[in-house]
Amino acid sequence: MKPGGHDLPRWKKGLFAALMVALALGAIEIVTGAAGSMVTRGVFSGYRLQAQRDALAASGGLVTMRPGWIQDEVLTGNDPFGPRAPADEHVVVAVVGGSFAYVFAEQGLPHLITRLEQLPRFHGKTLVPLNAAAGGHKQPQQAMTVAYLTSLGHQLDIVINLDGFNDVALHPTEDARAGVFPAYPRRWHQRVEGLMPSGALRLMLQRIGHEQRRAALAQVFSGFPWRFLNTANLVYAALDRMVESQLVETDRKLLKSSPATEPAIRFSDDAEMFSYLAGLWRRSSRVIHDLASAHGVRYYHFLQPNQYVPASKPMDPVETSVAWRPQHPYRRIVETAYPLLREAGQALKADGIRFTDLSAAFVDHPEPLYVDSCCHINPRGNVIVADLVFDAIRRDLASD
């Protein structure tokens, strides 16, 4: 203590030091929050990052989904329906399509089933949902799924085909680069493993390693207190973006790795390519309709919504930062190809096929619904879609 001075008690010194540290940490959090907004070019949302981390950790870093009915039946030998009830006691409602349809079947189909059960047509019946969609599916895979289940003798009473986006987006952005025939499944050249050169298998193993590292990052930064700190979230966003770029680069190399692409087809320009893809989509839907009609199944075809359809949904800054990428290749594809799908859908409708255009399903919904810059929506969005699907089915049943 200095002569004539007053030395502060230790507890006050400690309190002052703690206050200074808290203020410094607070300032760092504010700065990193602002930096995060600059990096992401939108609202830096810890909640959104945590939702992404939860999904990555739960899936092991995977971005595709294996349909549950294939997992149950093919890998385990179990019947996806469980014990069979007499056909007149239950109604099987199946959904086919890509990942949009897959998530709809998980989040929206239960709501649809509840509403259908209220219709007089289904009184006394047990409605059985069947998620027969799979991430990455595009026509003619939906048609093949219905044919496969029918061939196995599974009862189908209502088939809902919710598709369109994959059918025009996946070939030009992935398969076309590797010269894959447009009707082949997504990344067909990677799936035909026996025909792959050894370098492609090595790249696939590298991709798995990147996925696992991404999932591990998500799990670590999901813990307390990191998930609540802007600084930690900014570090996580930077590391995740680095791993994501490694995934993109590995995918780019994979797209060049396999010759299993025949028969070769070359389009003179994008207009010819999109016309071909829309025609393939239309013809495949007609195949499902014909097969369903032959077996007494009611088939409903819906064109899925997408955020890149012009003027199809109002978005606030938060949703825009998550779901809208002005330079995304999907934007140009949707703007170019969706009018062709709508036109093809009207041709289906004119031929007596139950087609409904849901591309503007969210035009009156300003609340956030899209969860990524591709096409996927949250549970609220899937309930909205379920209500629209219900309306179409109800009107059709009422016309009988």
Rank of each mutant, 00 (worst) to 15 (best):
N230R: 09
G124D: 03
V31Q: 03
T150N: 13
H365V: 15
F274M: 08
I377V: 15
S99Y: 02
I30V: 12
A101F: 03
K13G: 00
V95Q: 14
V43L: 08
V39A: 02
L291F: 09
A292P: 11
D163I: 09
G82C: 11
L255A: 13
K125V: 00
F122L: 02
E73G: 04
D72M: 14
Y184F: 03
Y370M: 04
V21S: 07
W69P: 00
R53M: 15
H154V: 03
N131S: 04
Q141L: 14
A216D: 14
P263E: 01
V159L: 14
I384L: 09
A143F: 07
G26E: 09
F274P: 08
L152W: 05
L254Y: 12
W11Y: 02
R394P: 08
I28W: 10
G124N: 00
A311C: 10
K138I: 02
L75D: 10
I70E: 06
Y330L: 11
L217C: 11
A143P: 07
P140L: 05
A147E: 15
T320L: 12
V63S: 00
P368I: 01
S151K: 15
Q52S: 11
L280R: 15
I393F: 05
A232E: 00
Q304V: 09
L15H: 03
D54P: 03
P310N: 08
F165M: 06
A35D: 01
T336G: 01
S284I: 04
Q142Y: 10
I70F: 13
L234W: 05
P185E: 11
A344C: 03
V180S: 07
L127M: 04
R41T: 02
Q118M: 10
W69Q: 01
S268A: 15
C374W: 11
P366Y: 06
K256C: 05
T356M: 11
A218W: 10
R214L: 14
K12I: 12
Y47W: 04
